[in-house]
Design a protein around this nucleic acid. Structure first.
Lengths: 126, 126
DNA sequence: AATACTATATGATATTATCATATATGTGTA
DNA sequence: TACACATATATGATAATATCATATAGTATT
């Protein structure tokens, strides 16, 4: 149930990028190393969505524990120092696996949408 | 971390139907009322995947609490009685919302896959 | 009587996601 | 100098989602 207004719509949103955050992060890092705050901005630019910043930082630490990324502190004269993340070989391998999974997800969603639109055209009031 | 073998691959799978289980159930129920065990088989047929049966039952009860479906016991001479679920108007409304979200998700995934394949073609070893 | 299939349900726990808040550096400005 | 603001990382508390195992029971088959 939605915590904000108590309605029956779950806070869970089937369209949010959080559900695919790891592959998206890995894809960005496969282009060039980056840090948490930078990734937030990249994700927003690419996905038109502001990811919860606390969740992103925790996700990055978890991904490091999992061996998909590595991090080092980078000095930053223009502001606070940054923890810069680099993708590892394991991370690249996982990215490939995730891409395969997402191809499958994409097919599932398209199958769903076809079924839905078919019902809609048949005037089934759905 | 994967509980079965302890590897760093999360049990979380970006391709599984559990991530879109509610819209899929609602779509099936919008065609005709059904019961848990029947839905499991339908989902397997449509999505080539066996959903965890305990999870499905709990999801159905949650959806009922949320007002998306209603249930009644139906006598079954050929086996144990069945709890038959029917979609409500609220469920139909949510199905429409979910479809919109999934169109967005589909676009996000395709954008991701385009980016990924572009990297792959450029021989970036990802 | 034992086994298999159908059918629903829940205990225990792990994982994922959200919301709020703490801390600190540098820049601009009142 | 004091303050607000953007950048930057982190974590406490809690809610929501997902997994795995197990319990219970009716009907059919061997």
């Amino acid at each position: 149930m939605c915590r904000t207004c108590g309605c029956s719509f779950r806070s869970r949103d089937f369209g949010n990028i959080e559900r695919f955050i790891e592959p998206c992060i890995l894809l960005l890092l496969s282009k060039s190393p980056s840090h948490g705050y930078g990734l937030i901005e990249d994700l927003e630019k690419h996905c038109d969505e502001r990811v919860d910043i606390g969740y992103l930082y925790r996700t990055l630490r978890r991904m490091e524990k999992d061996g998909w990324v590595e991090s080092d502190w980078e000095e930053n004269e223009a502001g606070p120092d940054r923890r810069t993340y680099t993708i590892t070989q394991e991370g690249k391998d996982f990215l490939r696996t995730a891409a395969t999974s997402l191809i499958r997800t994409d097919k599932l969603i398209q199958r769903f949408l076809e079924g839905y639109q078919k019902n809609y055209q048949n005037n089934k009031n759905v």
